[in-house]
């Protein structure tokens, strides 16, 4: 017997849940005070926005709303790392990334308030609107990356999916095609542990979700999605690789869905309060 191939998944974390550095050396972005402040401000803004949106739904002023509570570091790092000419293909709760790209708060509220005009948002006109059919957005990112590669443009397509989305065929098809064609695309899995009521361990037997990228032959890493520095560094590296023609990257951002799936959901039905409390101690946006 010989071993045909061997793989490993690296995990990146620079800050502990209290925000204290755990790595000996921090990436460059950590020394950029203005950039760190810009991201911190946005994480706070999204947190406030999110609580307000939930309140608006509870008082009948908004339809069903998908909260991003707990995902702030992951989302803000994505938006902060991207350039305007890159294209973003979100799922439906990446407000932190979208605000960084110029989408306005009122536009998000328009959409969840049942008005399509929210999809004609500010910010890059080539960015896609929210995508509810799970995993279908990955194909769009692959197609966009093909267009950029074809025209020789140094642009990158970035898409986000949840842990549940990694069970979809579209997810695997996209990773496979992006790998085969070495496309300038960055796939992010916001692994928040829950797909509505189905926990990660019922979604997959894999130790990590990042390793699913290995099947597509693409660079795959796992990061602490609550660590804005780790997440930003992973994005910077992936975007840089893509821009240099070195192909796609899959980033698994390990975070936690602090909220219900949407305002139409009640997570108390299926998950323990102790688990949520434990996650709240590690969440990225508020001082405890």
């Amino acid at each position: 017997m010989t071993i045909s191939a061997k793989f490993e998944i690296k995990y990146f974390q620079y800050l502990d849940p209290a925000g204290k550095p755990v790595a000996k050396k921090l990436p460059k972005v950590a020394e950029d005070r203005d950039e760190m402040l810009r991201m911190y401000r946005m994480m706070s803004q999204v947190r406030v926005f999110d609580r307000k949106a939930i309140a608006l739904q509870r008082t009948g002023q908004l339809g069903t709303y998908a909260s991003s509570l707990g995902h702030e570091a992951t989302h803000v790092a994505i938006g902060a790392a991207m350039r305007p000419e890159d294209a973003f293909f979100p799922m439906y709760r990446e407000y932190g990334a979208q605000f960084m790209r110029g989408v306005k708060m009122e536009e998000v509220l328009l959409f969840w308030g049942g008005d399509e005009r929210g999809n004609d948002f500010s910010g890059p006109k080539h960015d896609f609107p929210w995508c509810v059919p799970i995993a279908t957005q990955f194909h769009h990112a692959v197609g966009a990356a093909m267009a950029y590669k074809y025209r020789g443009e140094k642009r990158v397509a970035v898409s986000v999916i949840g842990d549940g989305g990694t069970s979809q065929g579209d997810f695997y098809e996209s990773l496979n095609a992006a790998g085969a064609w070495q496309l300038p695309v960055v796939f992010v899995i916001a692994n928040n542990k829950w797909a509505i009521s189905v926990p990660l361990e019922l979604q997959t037997r894999c130790e990590t979700l990042a390793q699913k990228g290995i099947a597509g032959g693409i660079e795959s890493v796992q990061v602490d999605g609550n660590d804005i520095i780790a997440m930003r560094e992973a994005m910077d590296t992936a975007l840089d690789r893509a821009r240099k023609g070195k192909g796609p990257t899959l980033i698994e951002a390990v975070t936690y869905r602090l909220s219900d799936h949407t305002t139409a959901d009640d997570a108390r039905r299926y998950r323990k309060q102790e688990e949520v409390a434990e996650a709240e101690a590690k969440e990225p946006a508020e001082e405890s």
Binding site: A87, F89, H126, F128, T136, F138, H139, H140, A141, V142, G143, A144, A145, M146, A147, Y148, A157, D170, E173, S174, A177
Partner: peptide, 9 residues
């Protein structure tokens, strides 16, 4: 799906 992505760009 990729045709949609290409067409959008």
């Amino acid at each position: 799906g990729i045709s949609i992505g290409m067409a959008s760009q």
